[in-house]
Simulated scan of single mutants.
Amino acid sequence: MEEHKLQTGSRFLLVTLLNLIITLFELIGGLLSGSLSLISDAFHNFGDAFSLILSYAANRISRRAPTVKNTYGFRRAEILAALLNSLLLVFISLFLLTEVFKRFMQPATIHGKLMFIVAVISLVANLAATILLNKDSKHNLNIKAAYLHLLGDALASIGVIISAILITIFKVYWIDPLMTLLVSLYIIYEAWPIIRQTFSILMEESPQLNFEDIQKDLLTIPEIMGVHHLHAWLIDEHELVLSVHVNMADLPLSQTECVYLKIENILQKKYGVAHVTIQAECNRGRNTKLLIEKENFQNN
């Protein structure tokens, strides 16, 4: 595990350095060639470098052990980083869309051959950076947000190459802002689901669980006569936490613990719940609905 973390850290460092180099390279190439799509790609790469630094810092913070003040640990740091990175993507894309409008209104002459050379070199570097983070992006929202930055830049570089070829051969300069428009819209489209998911986690929305099925499964345990006040939320994109009140007969504590084990076994194996908090009651709340409502909360 530690070896994997070190490898991830090394990849973050290497990809960050790659992006800083690409940013400078594309910015100079864009200014010399007059290509808006190259300049926009440079902005995206600069955003990538910031994104990777933020993602790496959040990844390090998330590994800290729980404390008295943060009893669930610091894993939400990565969720915050994923949200900030995705919002940055959208902000940069919206800014570039305004530049696209200006370029459509005032077309500029572009040096197609120089644009092509810079774009090809940038594509190779972007693909290398994307490959480095591909594996980790499948299991971590934070790294996925950074990965999408890189993937967007790789696609942008392909678009710039196509634009450069068309500009060189046919002198169609409007293709440059058009490609910037398409890439910006694509990046917004890819970033939106991450924004929605991270916001959902931070707002502690209930995950995709069938609460009625959970209630039915818990009621199959002979000692349980009622299930109510069920809550579920995510600490990060992987760790699911659940709390529930159950009505039981007036049993000794030793027998109650056996029932708790049965509840935990069902919730962990069938529903993937990582941490369960159970409150046992005899008659209190027996007629309360499964999901707590405002009036029930006030009455209890």
Score class of each variant (00 low, 15 high):
residue 222 P to E: 06
residue 124 V to G: 01
residue 61 I to S: 02
residue 25 F to N: 06
residue 10 S to Y: 05
residue 179 M to C: 09
residue 55 S to I: 03
residue 1 M to T: 12
residue 87 L to T: 03
residue 132 L to P: 03
residue 91 F to C: 14
residue 117 I to V: 13
residue 238 H to N: 13
residue 197 Q to E: 15
residue 21 I to S: 14
residue 149 H to P: 05
residue 90 V to S: 08
residue 120 V to S: 06
residue 3 E to V: 09
residue 248 M to N: 00
residue 262 K to P: 08
residue 174 W to I: 01
residue 156 A to H: 08
residue 125 A to M: 06
residue 215 Q to T: 13
residue 50 F to S: 12
residue 288 T to Y: 14
residue 119 A to V: 00
residue 234 L to I: 02
residue 7 Q to N: 12
residue 250 D to A: 15
residue 166 L to K: 05
residue 123 L to Q: 00
residue 146 A to L: 01
residue 110 I to H: 02
residue 198 T to V: 11
residue 143 I to Y: 02
residue 229 H to I: 00
residue 185 L to M: 11
residue 287 N to S: 09
residue 210 N to E: 14
residue 25 F to H: 08
residue 54 L to P: 02
residue 208 Q to G: 10
residue 280 A to H: 00
residue 163 S to R: 03
residue 241 V to Q: 02
residue 8 T to S: 05
residue 160 V to P: 05
residue 265 N to I: 08
residue 248 M to K: 11
residue 63 R to D: 01
residue 8 T to I: 15
residue 65 A to C: 00
residue 14 L to T: 14
residue 271 Y to S: 06
residue 225 M to K: 11
residue 63 R to K: 12
residue 24 L to E: 07
residue 61 I to R: 01
residue 276 V to Q: 04
residue 258 C to P: 00
residue 181 L to E: 00
residue 140 N to A: 11
residue 86 S to W: 06
residue 175 I to P: 02
residue 196 R to E: 11
residue 65 A to L: 07
residue 76 R to S: 07
residue 27 L to Y: 15
residue 298 Q to V: 12
residue 267 L to E: 05
residue 149 H to A: 08
residue 83 L to W: 06
residue 264 E to S: 14
residue 157 S to H: 02
residue 60 R to P: 02
residue 72 Y to R: 06
residue 163 S to W: 01
residue 102 K to E: 13
residue 157 S to C: 09
residue 225 M to H: 14
residue 297 F to L: 15
residue 251 L to N: 00
residue 64 R to I: 04
residue 217 D to V: 09
residue 18 L to V: 05
residue 58 A to V: 08
residue 90 V to Y: 06
residue 48 D to S: 15
residue 285 G to P: 11
residue 80 L to Y: 12
residue 223 E to G: 03
residue 242 L to S: 03
residue 64 R to M: 10
residue 113 K to E: 07
residue 167 I to D: 04
residue 182 L to N: 00
residue 237 E to Q: 15
residue 277 T to S: 12
residue 51 S to D: 07
residue 272 G to E: 09
residue 214 I to C: 09
residue 154 A to L: 04
residue 220 T to F: 13
residue 273 V to R: 01
residue 118 V to P: 04
residue 212 E to V: 15
residue 28 I to E: 06
residue 36 L to M: 12
residue 253 L to K: 13
residue 179 M to S: 06
residue 225 M to G: 09
residue 149 H to F: 15
residue 235 I to A: 10
residue 113 K to Y: 04
residue 173 Y to K: 05
residue 288 T to Q: 10
residue 30 G to K: 07
residue 60 R to G: 00
residue 154 A to R: 03
residue 65 A to T: 12
residue 57 A to S: 10
residue 199 F to S: 15
residue 47 G to P: 12
residue 173 Y to V: 11
residue 47 G to D: 12
residue 138 K to E: 04
residue 300 N to E: 13
residue 256 T to V: 10
residue 14 L to D: 06
residue 12 F to L: 00
residue 14 L to R: 11
residue 281 E to R: 13
residue 119 A to Y: 01
residue 222 P to M: 10
residue 155 L to D: 00
residue 144 K to P: 05
residue 219 L to K: 12
residue 255 Q to T: 08
residue 68 V to F: 10
residue 27 L to Q: 07
residue 181 L to P: 04
residue 180 T to H: 08
residue 257 E to K: 08
residue 119 A to N: 02
residue 26 E to Y: 08
residue 132 L to M: 15
residue 205 E to M: 09
residue 211 F to M: 13
residue 91 F to K: 08
residue 63 R to P: 03
residue 279 Q to I: 03
residue 267 L to P: 03
residue 249 A to H: 13
residue 283 N to K: 15
residue 262 K to I: 06
